[in-house]
Write a protein that binds this DNA or RNA. Structure first.
Lengths: 342, 342
DNA sequence: AAACAGATTCAAAGCGCTTTGAATGGCGCG
DNA sequence: CGCGCCATTCAAAGCGCTTTGAATCTGTTT
């Protein structure tokens, strides 16, 4: 069933039928109802390709997922982010197009997306400190929202980010308040902007309390269970291991716990652990009482907000770039306690 | 830059330019080279909407992700699956369209996808025992591949699945060979087809060895860390707890380990654990030596195969439905050992 | 009753591509 | 030299929708 057929059935012109369905005001209300009814009855849906062509808009948002050829890891946060974003896309009539790309030819992908008119806008995932995608997309004049920020880029652009610095600063302050001084960090890869900010936040807290960060306590790596485990194990092997660690992800924190178990240590009693918790649907941090004390911010919510921001920016391209900074909650769980007496 | 402009620059008709770029034979090789060169130089890319309309094909594969309103969980396996599938789509010139949908109106989504011509085919995720989507898609005549199978459906259709029954049977046999008789199962939700098959496989192994499965040892629930933990904890509280458990997911197995730790028990020595390992990129089961003994099958590879199957089915619609059954590897790790002496 | 404004409806022209069917040009051959 | 054939190229007709500008139909107004 296409528009022509439907309009013939109704004895109306395609113009009127199209307008009736798209809510234009110049069609009589009686006619509109008749048209809507017939469309429903005959299960008419406008062809998406034709609509795209006629409108010159794709009604599609692109997500480009870089799959680093080095570590081959899909960001585990990603699934929940798009669940949040997808919710908003559906509500606003947008499609979501996913592109998996190895980091070789990522730039070409964006150029393609633009020149083929595949998407009306893009979400940028996992920004680096000085991410080349941002100037590229600006140059291409393709609307975009960054999930995160790029510290080294000054020109304004749209972003949605959690306040990583303040989250890790608060985590540090909380541990300091429990008497900890030997505080470690098991961080993500620090060329990623979020990891950089997290480190800065924790270090700021330590320095404000007159504690000099010990380089042996600062680890950066991919946020897997195994890396969390290995990093903790390495620190525990030091002459004076940390009495507390801040961990950048829930998955890595599970590895940290395993290392502590293996060493016969108990979380909270022997070593305090605070993790960042993205509130992933498949990795809940406990039921009533959180397993880990955590700084929590829902990545799904970030997805929703990013989608809304992008859509409003697409539909109102002249507006100045907006951004949203989310504060993480500090949630007390069973993994922190006062510094052990020597 | 569009086709018309490009053809004017070249002093050729749109026909010839289009044919040159699409590899039709009736264009002189010299001309083709000239056209390709100019296209490159002017960064010409055919508009995707126009192409869709003219060809009557969308060159898009749909993935519909049901987001159960009850548990609000995104399947953690999903990210790796689409990473695998996306790889193949890119290679074959297909786009991937994602739709997040709450289970209310899932049927409407498929009808829409069909009648709007949004996609050329669909991947069905997370099939149930008697999944209504399969007859629906058959009726709609929309090509599809199921990731998994639906036990209660007899009509032929395309699927890619891991041999869940044999994987869990082998896990059971292995535990039996270590002398275990009190063997538990921490399974996924058993209206899901894969969970059903896994249970059947394990039970078959037990019964073949003359062991009657103890209902108290059989648990089914959502595969989260917390559920894994709680299920194990409950079993440990029994008068005669199991000496071994088979767990349906790596994440749940992490919870099982936590429950054992809390109870002061050691994996392998006190309780043996085998998990199913989807080989997720962000949840590797150890480096050299696996943390858990596991039946492993890469979900990313399943994604690749599903994509290939679907594409070949789209491009050759008359062919009979195909399917692929993958065997899981049994990988020995540090979580299993002989049954403890009482 | 004629004239006019406002409310509806319509025909037709795109949107940028593919594809059909026809036209052109170069070449070998009788 | 003229013909036919093959290799190229082209003009034009869609694909199914939106949207412009014109046409028609009401109901008022003078």
């Amino acid at each position: 069933m296409n528009l022509k057929q439907l309009s013939e059935i109704l004895g109306l012109s395609q113009t009127t039928v199209s307008r009736a369905l798209n809510g234009y005001p110049e069609v009589a209300e009686r006619t509109r109802l008749r048209v809507q009814h017939a469309a429903q009855k005959h299960n008419y849906q406008p062809n998406i390709g034709a609509q795209r062509l006629a409108r010159g808009r794709s009604m599609t948002i692109g997500h480009v997922i870089p799959l680093s050829t080095q570590h081959e890891m899909v960001n585990p946060v990603f699934a929940d982010f798009i669940a949040g974003a997808g919710e908003r896309y559906s509500a606003c009539g947008y499609d979501m197009k996913l592109t998996i790309v190895d980091d070789q030819n990522e730039e070409d992908i964006y150029r393609d997306l633009k020149s083929r008119g595949s998407v009306d806008g893009i979400i940028v995932h996992g920004p680096l400190m000085n991410d080349p995608r941002i100037p590229l997309l600006q140059e291409l004049d393709l609307p975009f929202v960054v999930h995160g920020r790029a510290s080294d880029i000054d020109t304004p652009y749209c972003w949605v980010d959690v306040n990583n610095a303040s989250a890790f600063q608060r985590a540090g302050e909380f541990l300091l308040s429990l008497g900890h001084r030997r505080i470690g960090l098991i961080n993500g890869l620090e060329h990623m902007d979020f990891a950089h900010r997290r480190r800065a936040g924790l270090v700021a807290a330590l320095e404000a309390a007159g504690v000099t960060p010990n380089p042996d306590y600062l680890h950066a790596g991919e946020m897997t269970e195994i890396n969390g485990h290995d990093a903790m194990k390495t620190m525990l092997a030091l002459d004076t291991p940390p009495t507390a660690v801040v961990v950048a992800s829930f998955i890595a924190a599970l590895g940290v716990r395993r290392a502590l178990d293996e060493a016969g240590l108990r979380m909270a009693r022997d070593v305090s652990v605070i993790t960042f918790d993205d509130d992933l649907s498949y990795l809940r941090n406990g039921d009533r009482i959180p397993i880990f004390t955590a700084t929590r911010s829902s990545v799904r919510q970030a997805g929703r907000l990013s989608a809304d921001l992008l859509i409003s920016h697409i539909e109102n391209p002249t507006a100045a770039p907006e951004h949203k900074l989310l504060e993480a909650d500090l949630i007390i769980g069973n993994s922190t306690g006062p510094v052990p007496q020597e």
